[in-house]
Computed example of a mutant assay.
Amino acid sequence: MQVKLIPSVSLFLGSYFPLSAILFLQDISEKSWAKSVCWSFKKCEFPILSNPGRSLTFFAICLVSLLFFILVLNRIPGLHELTVKESKTVPNDLINYVFPYVVSFMGLDLGGSGKFYGFIVFLAWMFLITYRSGQILMNPLLLAMGWQLYEISADIHGNGRNIIALSKSKIYPGDKLKSCVVQGIYVLSKFKE
């Protein structure tokens, strides 16, 4: 199954929700940081943002995308059955994911149009590379959500195959699992009892 463009954009942006939170916090004015923490809702004031349109929009888009991302992963149907012969966890590639975070700490000013639009082009370029390489499901946010990447030797319809798979539960030799292939990556789920 090939992930369509719009869901792929959503999956990609959802993986950058932590970055949107960092940029949102960096956009809070110094005056707001100087105020004491409010413990009563009656006396609370919203923080003043330097660039509310950009920081709130990016934060909201990434939050909605993250919720969609979680919904999609938890509802991917298991269309086929496989039996695990051997499995080992595979470390996730972090380098593509880390670049935008480094950029955010190198003085990305959401108020500077050149830097902001340059950052948007950078994210678009990262998305294009990720999408074209078929790695849209590969991001470290999956680890935080409890998913793990595996290299598995499995029996699929009587044929032995070596596959790359994502699973939310631990995989052991002898497990019988449901699977769905998304851009060459098997998304695994256990049979419901």
Rank of each mutant, 00 (worst) to 15 (best):
2 Q>A: 09
2 Q>S: 08
4 K>I: 02
4 K>M: 06
6 I>T: 13
7 P>T: 12
8 S>T: 01
9 V>P: 08
9 V>A: 10
11 L>W: 04
13 L>K: 11
13 L>Q: 06
14 G>Y: 06
18 P>G: 08
20 S>V: 00
22 I>E: 10
24 F>T: 01
25 L>A: 13
26 Q>T: 00
27 D>M: 01
28 I>R: 14
30 E>H: 03
31 K>D: 14
32 S>E: 09
32 S>W: 00
33 W>T: 02
37 V>K: 14
37 V>W: 07
37 V>C: 06
38 C>V: 04
39 W>A: 03
40 S>D: 13
40 S>I: 07
40 S>V: 09
40 S>A: 10
45 E>I: 05
46 F>L: 14
46 F>Y: 05
47 P>R: 00
47 P>Y: 00
48 I>M: 13
50 S>K: 13
51 N>Q: 14
51 N>G: 00
52 P>Y: 01
53 G>S: 06
53 G>F: 11
55 S>Y: 05
58 F>P: 07
59 F>W: 08
60 A>M: 04
61 I>R: 06
61 I>A: 14
63 L>V: 00
65 S>L: 02
68 F>I: 04
69 F>G: 08
71 L>K: 11
72 V>I: 15
73 L>H: 10
74 N>R: 15
74 N>T: 11
75 R>I: 06
77 P>A: 13
77 P>T: 06
79 L>E: 14
79 L>Y: 10
80 H>S: 08
81 E>G: 11
81 E>L: 05
85 K>W: 01
87 S>P: 12
88 K>I: 00
88 K>T: 01
88 K>Y: 00
90 V>P: 10
90 V>G: 07
92 N>I: 12
93 D>V: 10
97 Y>V: 03
99 F>T: 07
104 S>M: 06
107 G>D: 10
108 L>N: 03
109 D>K: 14
109 D>M: 06
110 L>S: 03
111 G>A: 12
112 G>P: 05
113 S>C: 04
121 V>M: 14
122 F>Q: 10
122 F>V: 06
124 A>M: 13
127 F>I: 03
127 F>T: 03
127 F>P: 12
130 T>G: 06
130 T>R: 09
131 Y>L: 09
132 R>H: 06
133 S>L: 09
134 G>N: 04
134 G>D: 02
134 G>P: 09
136 I>M: 15
142 L>Q: 15
148 Q>A: 04
149 L>R: 13
151 E>N: 09
155 D>R: 14
156 I>N: 05
159 N>M: 11
163 I>V: 12
164 I>H: 04
165 A>T: 09
165 A>Y: 03
166 L>G: 01
167 S>E: 07
168 K>R: 12
168 K>E: 09
168 K>S: 04
170 K>D: 15
174 G>Y: 10
175 D>N: 15
177 L>P: 12
180 C>R: 13
181 V>A: 12
187 V>E: 03
191 F>I: 05
193 E>H: 07
193 E>D: 13
